[in-house]
Design a protein around this nucleic acid. Structure first.
Lengths: 126, 126
DNA sequence: CGTATTGTTATATCTTATATATAACAGTTT
DNA sequence: AAACTGTTATATATAAGATATAACAATACG
């Protein structure tokens, strides 16, 4: 688990953790069935509190990225919920693209960025 | 000024305000040189505190969407900072697309969304 | 069986962020 | 002169985030 936390960020630690794990799944560094470190171990590795990791795992479970097996601990398990995910993505893109649009970033610029990021995830070189 | 605030959202009110004003600029409902309502007036209209509006205006100024003229108050004034905006957009897209990618949303799906949103802003029908 | 580890829950505490409330100030505008 | 502008200062209340300690039931392992 390569996790990088920016302690000076305005993003909550547990949120950064969620993001990194989700990007890890997208980049196929984490695959369905893979176990996550125990909350205590990951907390120790990063140097944060156990409950902060636990909160991240809880959110990931609620959002359908992780299931908890009593025997194996937290395990990657992505629930495909494409319709809902599309709606959420659109809401997020509305704001991001508004900011970009104000700065004269073009539709083609955004398409290029999207392609770049998809290639990063598809080539699994994160 | 048509501002909609969701008081049950986990997004801070001042942040929702910033987002809505930025989307208003993108949709050309607000144009360079247009004055924003006074902090007291907008606060009254929405039913929130003056300082919450003031914080939003301060953030918008720091991010280069607004300038303050002693004579005219807060005025829309977008600083084009394309390079920086591109970098920020990419960081934001990385997380959004990771979530989408996990849910089997394709590159083409994202391109369609991007086009839809650009058309919304370009047609100025927000 | 006994020990260690798992996720989970429960308190408690501390810091920071958010929002509100009053008040005041200097500079415009009318 | 009166009304308005953004801004600043101070104070307060609530919520969010992070940490600390402790305990519990279930599982894994020797």
């Amino acid at each position: 688990m390569y996790i990088e936390i920016d302690f000076n960020s305005d993003e909550a630690i547990y949120n950064q953790l969620c993001d990194q794990i989700i990007m890890g799944i997208a980049a196929a560094r984490l695959n369905d069935g893979d176990p996550l470190p125990s909350v205590r171990q990951l907390a120790d590795d990063i140097g944060i509190n156990m409950h902060t990791v636990n909160k991240a795992y809880t959110v990931l479970r609620q959002q359908g990225y992780v299931k908890v097996d009593r025997r194996r601990g937290a395990v990657i398990s992505v629930e495909p919920d494409k319709a809902n995910a599309l709606a959420e993505l659109k809401e997020s893109l509305r704001v991001d693209i508004a900011r970009a649009f104000c700065r004269n970033i073009t539709r083609e610029d955004v398409h290029k960025l999207v392609d770049q990021i998809f290639e990063e995830y598809e080539s699994r070189k994160m």
